[in-house]
């Protein structure tokens, strides 16, 4: 099968298949996937506000302190900029510079990993105060953050996968669609974090 794929890919039309003539099916596919995922997060954060306003003051309830801001802000400082190395990597491979692709992806890997590490630290502190069974606020806090965390984890897996693939030399100026797709997904995961920062950490103070 591989060999057939090979021959197919080496035919003249095959070579052309990822030339940017119009949007590719892959592009549309990932955009729709992101849309439906985005709707999921929107519904989740919507539920947060619904439950909060149905619950009424005080929020957080049961004498739980307002969420600390320092750590989340540091996490934001790590995660949001982690989109830059991806952009840089993509720009590189469009020029066929594989080293740039690898370097960029590696950078993202480090930053995303740090983010998850910090989230672990945050949990270890907060779990001492309340858990996901304490009350609805606890359930919301852990559900939202873990759900996003798991998306970051999946994103990182995809980045690792790209990194390995790029070491095997699958990508180049004509062949970077997979890079593009993973990049879109990573930007999405970043953007969602900003919404979560606002909802979970900032909005209770409003």
């Amino acid at each position: 099968m591989i060999s057939r794929g090979m021959t197919a890919a080496t035919r003249p039309t095959g070579l052309a298949t990822e030339e940017p003539v119009g949007r590719s099916t892959g592009w549309w596919g990932v955009m729709l996937f992101i849309t439906t995922e985005g709707t999921l997060f929107a519904a989740l954060l919507g539920s947060y506000f619904y439950l909060r306003f149905q619950h009424g003051a005080p929020w957080p309830p049961d004498g739980i302190r307002q969420p600390e801001l320092l750590l989340p802000l540091i996490m934001t400082g790590v995660l949001v900029p982690s989109s830059l190395p991806v952009l840089w990597a993509e720009a590189g491979i469009r020029q066929g510079r594989r080293w740039q692709l690898r370097a960029g992806l590696f950078g993202t890997l480090v930053m995303g990993g740090t983010f998850l590490g910090l989230q672990g630290v945050e949990y270890s502190e907060i779990l001492r105060e309340y858990t996901f069974t304490t009350n609805v606020y606890g359930s919301l806090f852990y559900a939202i953050t873990t759900f996003h965390g798991s998306h970051v984890a999946v994103g990182l897996l995809m980045v690792c996968w790209l990194l390995v693939a790029s070491l095997h030399g699958g990508f180049g100026a004509h062949r970077y669609e997979r890079v593009r797709i993973v990049a879109y997904y990573w930007h999405f995961v970043d953007a969602v974090w900003v919404a979560i920062l606002f909802t979970v950490y900032l909005s209770p103070r409003l």
Binding site: A9, A165, G172, A173
Partner: peptide, 22 residues
């Protein structure tokens, strides 16, 4: 699942000029 997907989407090995690398 993850393993299968990784293989599913794995890019075919290509010579530099197919891929488009100087």
């Amino acid at each position: 699942v993850a393993g299968t997907l990784a293989g599913w989407l794995w890019p075919p090995r290509r010579t530099p000029d197919e891929a488009g690398v100087p």
